[in-house]
Structure formats: C-alpha cells, structure tokens
Design a protein around this nucleic acid. Structure first.
Lengths: 214, 214
DNA sequence: ACCTGAACACCGTTCAAGT
DNA sequence: ACCTGAACACCGTTCAAGT
C-alpha cells in the first residue's frame, strides 16, 4: 500500500507523498512513534524466517534469522533506531519472536528461560542493527573512528593501563565476526544460566506476580 | 562549568542558556552529535567506579559498576539514546572501559576476549538504559504495555503456538531481575566462548588486519 | 461528523553581515 | 579575524474553521 521506498520516515514526508496536510495522518496514528511502529512491522515482513523449518544446526539457523533481521534494520536507519525504543507488538514482530522461541526450544532451552532469552537476543540484534545503520549513513564515521583509535593509542599509561595493554585488540575484528562471537556468547550463556528462583509470594499475590516491569 | 540541570539537551536550549544565538555553539562543536558526546562524557564522571578497587566477587563488582552506569543513563533520556549511536571516546568513557577490563581480567578472562567483551557488555547496558529511560519519560508506556499483553494473550494459536504456550512467561520479571539475569548470561557466555581464530593473513597484510569495521 | 489548512512551537545548520 | 543575528529548511502536534 504505502511501502514505497522511504529513507526518512517522517509524518510530513508521508503526508506530502499522499498529497495532503500533515494533520490528516493523526486519523490513523496517534503520534509519530505509532507511525514508526507500523512501518517497522511492515518492514519485518521481509525478514527471512525460512531457516526455522529448515534442517541443520539450530544455532546456525538462529544466527541466520537474526542476521536477516539485522540486515533489514540496516536498510532503514531511522526505523532501526525507533525499534530500540519502541515496544513492538505487530504481527511480523510476533512472527520473529515465534521463530526465535521455536529454535531455542528445539535447542533444548526450557520455556521460562527461552521467554527471557528472546528479549535479550532481540535487544542485542536491534542495537547492533541501529548502530551499524547509523554509522553507515554518517559520512563522518571515519573521523570518529580515527579519534577513537588515537584516544586508545595515546591513552595515559597511568590512568588507563589496561587499555594501553589491550591496544589494538579493542578495535580488532569486523562487525560481522564480532556479531557472530556475540551471538555465541549469548547462546552459551543462555544454555548455562538458569532463571533466578522467583521471590517467594504468598498465595494472595500470585495473580499480581507480573512485577513492576520498570 | 555548564553542568546545570539539563533535561532536554539541545543546541538552542544551551545557546539561550548562555544568552547567545545558536550559531555561536558551532565554534565549540561541529554538530549536535558532538555536543551530545561532550555532555555524555561529562555525565559519565558520576558513574561509581568504587567497586573496582573494593574487595569481593568480581562478578558482583562488575554488576555494581554497570548498574551505576545504567542508572546515570536513565536520568538523562536523550543522552542515553545518543550513547547508543555515538562512538564515545571521552576520558570518562575510557575510565569506564578501563574499569570493566580490569574486572574481567581479574576474573581470569584473557586479554583478547576481554577486549571484545567490553563492547558487548557496554552495548547491552547502554541499550537497557536507553530503553528504560525512554519508557520512563513516556506517559503512554502503560498503554503500550497493555497492547503487548493483549497481543500475546490473544495471539492466534495456529500462527503463534510457541507464544501462546509461553504466555505470561514472556512478560514475567522486573526490569532489574531481567538485567541481572542478562548480565549473568553475558558473563557465563564470555567465560565459555573463545574468540574465533583470526583469518590467516599473509605477513604482508598483518598491519592492515584491523578489518573493515563496518 | 469527519477531515484538513494554517498556525504554533520547536529543531539543526548555514552564511552574510557586523565588530 | 572572530563572533553572531537572522534566515533557511525542516520537524511534530494542535485546533479552529471549513465541508
């Protein structure tokens, strides 16, 4: 419907695209965050969930799904950024969650742990996508990188002995290899870390045990 | 110097605060990202690095430092958001990196692994801070939560069997307990996951082995 | 009743004109 | 030479006035 190539997703741009004033969009969206969420979910439809049903190692398939997700985010920097702050609940987002849970459970992760693990995996993937998308669209990124390199190389030995010791190790690796390693860390950690035992609750407060969520 | 209580850090607001026009700030900062980075680093000075030199379990001390960091981010939502996309290189940021590396090494993590681990820990902590800060300042967050609860409870059983199966488990736990678990996951994963063997490089390209970093 | 033009209150950035 | 007022090109949101 309105899935034309949008680079800067903004209320006004979409309004002029539709030959109307910006006020009209408030009939469909209560604010700009709502609009972003809607476009984002539309976009998540293009994430490749094929690996879920495919044969092969569940870890590799999970990595494939998350890579596809990150790739989609990187194509639309502003949406990638909004994905970090939004609480998505669209159908395609749920498809993605469903896929990740399926793969985790296939890997032997029990239900409660898988539930929390999905959030963590999505958080890291989304943050990675938003970061890389922003850097990619920022032409001055090279400069910032150089500044960081210089800051590390010239770091005061007295104040930053560890940093001086690590040196280039802090900057080593490509984005892809780092993300592959991060995903391994997460999966190994998830497999090794049980959920905390829930705080003992008296029977009367069992139904409010969802917590403050803040 | 200019560390007055700033809630919305914006070029113009700071300019009027200083009784001048917005153009004047371009003498000190080349753009608004630069300004954010500067203020952020100023803010990072208030992160409590005391636990680094204190006695006790290195994991708990690392958790204390990161909690302090997240707490600082949550006090300034716009800066928390910019921290996700910026490539910080200020002195206080380096202090924080130094602290984390120190604790990781104390825990027996070897140098190269610690170098990558710091980035991952900071990414998760920063994302958590930015998320929670944004939610806290958004009064409609309750509504979005309700929408998500409803979406999960009423999810189509055919399309989302796993989600239906998990149900409230997906929403269980407070922000704090989730973050404590996430940190355990990360530390367990870091301890369990060696870096990939670097791609074999001919001697001639050893000096360019920093990678594309994209 | 529904839609929307125009206005409001902001942004970041640039650049010519001042001192 | 250095600083900056004013202008430019955008934002998101509201609201009164139209149909």
């Amino acid at each position: 419907m309105r899935s034309e190539g949008l680079e800067k997703v903004t209320l006004r741009r979409l309004a002029t695209e539709l030959d109307t004033g910006p006020a009209s969009l408030y009939v469909y969206f209560r604010n700009v965050a709502d609009l972003h969420a809607a476009v984002l979910d539309e976009l998540l439809a293009s994430v490749d969930l094929g690996p879920v049903g495919a044969p092969g190692d569940w870890r590799e398939r999970l990595e494939a799904v998350l890579s596809s997700y990150v790739g989609v985010l990187m194509q639309y920097p502003p949406l990638a950024r909004s994905a970090l702050l939004t609480r998505p609940s669209g159908p395609c987002y749920l498809d993605l969650v469903e896929a990740l849970v399926t793969l985790l459970r296939e890997g032997g992760v029990e239900a409660d742990r898988a539930a929390w693990a999905v959030d963590l995996l999505m958080q890291v993937a989304t943050a990675t996508g938003a970061e890389q998308a922003t850097r990619r669209e920022n032409p001055r990124d090279g400069d910032e990188w150089d500044v960081l390199v210089a800051a590390i190389e010239n770091a005061d030995v007295g104040r930053y002995p560890q940093i001086r010791d690590l040196g280039q190790l802090l900057l080593s690796g490509t984005g892809t290899t780092r993300m592959r390693w991060a995903l391994s860390v997460l999966l190994n950690g998830i497999l090794a870390t049980a959920l905390p035992v829930p705080a003992p609750a008296s029977p009367s407060e069992i139904n409010t045990s969802e917590g403050e969520r803040s």
